[in-house]
Design a protein around this nucleic acid. Structure first.
Lengths: 341, 341
DNA sequence: ATTAGCTGCTAATACGCATTAGCAGTCAAG
DNA sequence: CTTGACTGCTAATGCGTATTAGCAGCTAAT
């Protein structure tokens, strides 16, 4: 490994019989400056560069210029490990695509620490290696977010975020309207007694769903059951649903829907004949379940792409704070019955 | 975005009433040097650092020290886009895990260029930002590989690679022996006429499988059919298999096996009753196929982990070239029949 | 013949940090 | 009271590049 020293512009300069500054100018001088270097000299320098295979050290470049075409990606949970893999992958897909299109590389902020919880500002703030960063995760640390907002470091959140000492630039999914649309659809199909399985607080994504649900329900339908805690025994959840007389059940988590449906089937109940089930979101590998739930689609790749584009805008153009919510199209599915027929 | 200028050690120094050098020493001076700075001064500096939230610029750090705890990950194909996603993800999973354990961040080398083929040495060699890099992909550019081997930049390939101007450090899967084991198992179960569907050349991974197969077959079995081209019409492949009288067919690609089996079933033939099918490798989402093929397992995550560990060894310790082949355990499956009973 | 303007370059500096040599002061031993 | 060792720091330098100011030589215009 210890071997040939890395070539520098100085070496090239000596070989070409010019100064280091000239080499730098030949490589990437402004047109006005380049105009003052005759073709002949330029070719001499280029030739040396080509034959030696010299490439500028990006670190030094960044040192001098202040930018290095790297985007940081910070995830509050490890990006790949199995459980999460399906959650982050679609985002990363879009991010990588757009980063490539914009000619940026990606720095996955990983090291934050084994076992300990991940913090953006934890260690030597390796973040600053990147020109800006994307932040993703189900729940954000509000203190850190505040610090980001107040600071002068370009970043974009994936997923809507409440103001934190100022507006947060983000690209999110419009869960509220998507949820509302599903509620209204259920109402249109004759469902008047509704149940909601999932929390209504904490993370923005959860709040938005509940808000969309709550706003739509004032239109006439009735909320006959709201189970806040998730992941509880599917048995009990089903009991509660049956007891409530709900005809349509809205699940925040696909997993809950899957378990409840399984238990229902085991008891001889049928979805959607005995009650309809609607899932508020799409989940990768949903196809594993043999049942196609009525739901809405979260355009994760597109969110990644747009967030990346927004970040680049902020880095390069000093653009103002933007907040984008992407439409989540409904997914037909087979679990929402028509009560009117 | 335009806002407070980034803090530097100089600012801290002024605030604490010391020199920049002292700040640097307090932050990360060698014990011997630290011993010469009294507790009181150290605390004063630390206090300023804490209250201002200063963090050292990693770029400048790297500039001065030469290392920055970043590992590059170069993929010859885009890492996430759907088709490839399942191929790279398991590797990345292992890589991220180990990188985190070793406290390194990951730089995904992306930007190489839209549309054009990806080259390690393409652009401004952004590679050098990282302290070393992992290279993955089905097929490598041999010229580039040679340049890497000859150069003094630490790297590790994932997957076995032939010498390229010198031995290539890698962590791969032992496909040859895994293949041999499956052939011998088939032989032990009474299969004497074998078919091989898949290429025998080009990429190392393909060569190894064929080598393992060819070596095992000398033991007595007979190769009655070798279809080199893959992805051909499954119909014709099946015709050839049937005509050859082979009792066990080895597939390099799972996809081929799946298609052939489907066509066979459509014709009223059964795997493994009419002929056995063995797949030389494991594939993510293999579970999608309802048939569990007899195969061997490729420990992709472990490969990622070990490659990362090896790379860190090379970066930090100037370790010699290592070449590791991980054992690929056989997967029982239901497609290899016993002919002896 | 002076000036103005152009050409073809180079010297010098900044970027933020790590590191080394060494300075000024104190204190104890000889 | 000189020497040496030790303490508590700082000045200076280098890392490899980008960038700006400007120098020397020449030509053409006044």
């Amino acid at each position: 490994m210890a071997g040939t020293k890395r070539l520098t512009q100085h070496d090239i300069a000596k070989l070409a019989g010019v100064s280091q500054a000239t080499v730098s100018l030949v490589l990437n001088g402004a047109p006005t400056a380049l105009a003052r270097i005759p073709q002949e000299t330029r070719e001499r320098v280029q030739h040396v560069i080509r034959t030696t295979g010299y490439v500028a050290d990006p670190i030094a470049r960044r040192m001098a210029k202040g930018l290095n075409r790297i985007l940081g990606v910070f995830t509050y949970e490890p990006a790949f490990p199995s459980a999460q893999a399906d959650f982050f992958t679609p985002f990363l897909l879009g991010i990588e695509e757009e980063a490539q299109a914009q000619n940026y590389d990606l720095l996955l902020l990983t090291g934050a620490g084994v076992g300990r919880e991940r913090k953006i500002f934890a260690d030597g703030n390796r973040l600053r290696i990147a020109d800006g960063c994307l932040v993703l995760g189900r729940e954000f640390d509000r203190e850190e977010l505040k610090r980001l907002v107040t600071g002068d470091y370009p970043f974009v959140a994936i997923g809507r975020r409440e103001d934190a000492g100022g507006p947060v630039p983000y690209v999110g999914g419009d869960y509220a309207n998507a949820t509302r649309a599903l509620v209204e659809k259920a109402w249109a199909l004759g469902h008047e007694k509704l149940a909601y399985v999932g929390p209504s607080g904490s993370a923005e994504s959860v709040i938005d769903r509940w808000r969309g649900f709550a706003e739509a329900i004032t239109a006439g339908a009735e909320l006959v059951l709201h189970l806040d805690e998730v992941g509880g025994a599917a048995d009990e959840t089903l009991d509660a649903i049956v007891a409530s007389g709900a005809t349509a059940v809205f699940f925040v988590e696909l997993a809950d829907a899957v378990r409840v449906e399984a238990v229902a089937r085991a008891r001889g109940l049928s979805v959607p004949d005995d009650f309809s089930a609607i899932v508020l979101g799409s989940h990768v590998r949903a196809e594993r379940s043999h049942m196609q739930f009525t739901a809405f689609d979260i355009p994760r790749e597109e969110m990644g792409r747009q967030a990346t584009a927004m970040l680049v805008r902020r880095i390069e153009g000093d653009a103002p704070v933007e907040q984008i919510l992407l439409t989540c199209e409904p997914v037909e599915g087979q679990t929402l019955a028509n009560k009117r027929t």
